[in-house]
Deep mutational scan, measured.
Amino acid sequence: MGFKLLSKLLVYLTASIMAIASPLAFSVDSSGEYPTVSEIPVGEVRLYQIADGVWSHIATQSFDGAVYPSNGLIVRDGDELLLIDTAWGAKNTAALLAEIEKQIGLPVTRAVSTHFHDDRVGGVDVLRAAGVATYASPSTRRLAEVEGNEIPTHSLEGLSSSGDAVRFGPVELFYPGAAHSTDNLIVYVPSASVLYGGCAIYELSRTSAGNVADADLAEWPTSIERIQQHYPEAQFVIPGHGLPGGLDLLKHTTNVVKAHTNRSVVE
């Protein structure tokens, strides 16, 4: 069995187990497998329904001669939608809004960016022009300005110390501490036991640490421990890039980060 097929099978099995364990909360999309990078042309966006009122959005972007996937989250909030992270750029984010209108038909009224990198804030200006209120932590807003990236308009308070959590509509926002970046936030959907790890969490097929220019490698494993301790009931975990899975993604990420750190020390 090929690795790609095995990865998709694991996603399907995880979703099936969740649907059985929580039949009222989960209505997993039966329309197909989780979209992969090879299936999404740059400039297009796919939506994948995880649970009743919960979707991931998947886009792709060219970077350094390669094409990478990027995940975000959409959560229903009454007759409105909360968006977590842009679709990595203005063109993708405009396509995301169009796809949401086509498939869901509810307005996106608020959006949260989970850290300051372009795959999370690139497209904020498109959201703002569409009347979406954009939010991020003060740290993310400051770092985005320093980096020359787009800056969300509103500040999220109460997320300055490791372990801080605040309720934001249908989700809980959690600051686990520094990891992929010093400002990275985690998003949890309690009604569906869905954990969105953003770039602080890796997919299972990833074996290298990737972009760690703004990471705190020493603190990252401790931050992941905080996530595990705060959300032990999480059933569906979405990484910032690639295929979702279960809580095993947290341990896998820790292993990859520690291996990278150990290699760096040896070198």
Rank of each mutant, 00 (worst) to 15 (best):
K4C: 07
L5S: 15
L6R: 09
K8D: 14
K8L: 07
V11F: 10
Y12A: 13
T14L: 10
L24N: 14
A25K: 15
S27P: 12
V28H: 14
V28E: 09
V28F: 06
S30N: 12
S30P: 12
E33C: 07
Y34L: 09
P35W: 09
E39M: 12
V42Y: 07
E44V: 10
L47P: 07
Y48F: 14
Q49S: 10
I50C: 03
D52K: 11
G53A: 08
G53P: 04
S56F: 11
T60H: 09
G65L: 07
V67N: 15
G72P: 03
G72N: 04
G72D: 05
I74P: 01
I74E: 02
R76D: 04
R76W: 05
D77N: 07
E80F: 06
L81I: 12
L82E: 03
L82I: 11
I84H: 00
I84E: 00
A87D: 00
K91M: 14
L97H: 02
L97P: 03
I100M: 05
I100E: 01
E101D: 13
Q103L: 14
R110T: 09
R110I: 07
D118S: 08
R120K: 06
G123F: 03
L127S: 00
R128T: 13
Y135T: 00
A136D: 04
S137M: 15
P138Y: 10
P138S: 09
R142M: 13
L143W: 07
A144Y: 05
E147S: 14
G148Y: 06
I151L: 09
H154Y: 12
S162T: 10
G163A: 06
V166H: 07
F174E: 00
A179C: 04
D183H: 01
L185S: 04
L185G: 02
V187Y: 01
V187W: 01
V189R: 01
P190R: 11
P190M: 07
S191F: 13
S191V: 09
S193W: 11
V194M: 06
L195F: 07
Y196H: 06
G197P: 06
G197I: 02
C199E: 02
Y202F: 15
L204S: 10
S205F: 09
T207Y: 10
A209N: 15
G210E: 06
A213I: 12
A215N: 07
D216L: 08
E219P: 04
P221D: 07
S223W: 02
R226E: 04
I227C: 02
H230N: 13
P232Y: 08
E233D: 13
A234W: 03
P239A: 03
H241K: 01
H241S: 01
H241R: 04
L243W: 08
P244L: 06
L247M: 13
L247C: 06
L249Q: 02
L250P: 06
H252S: 04
T253G: 01
V257K: 01
A259K: 13
A259M: 11
T261R: 12
V265C: 04
E267I: 07
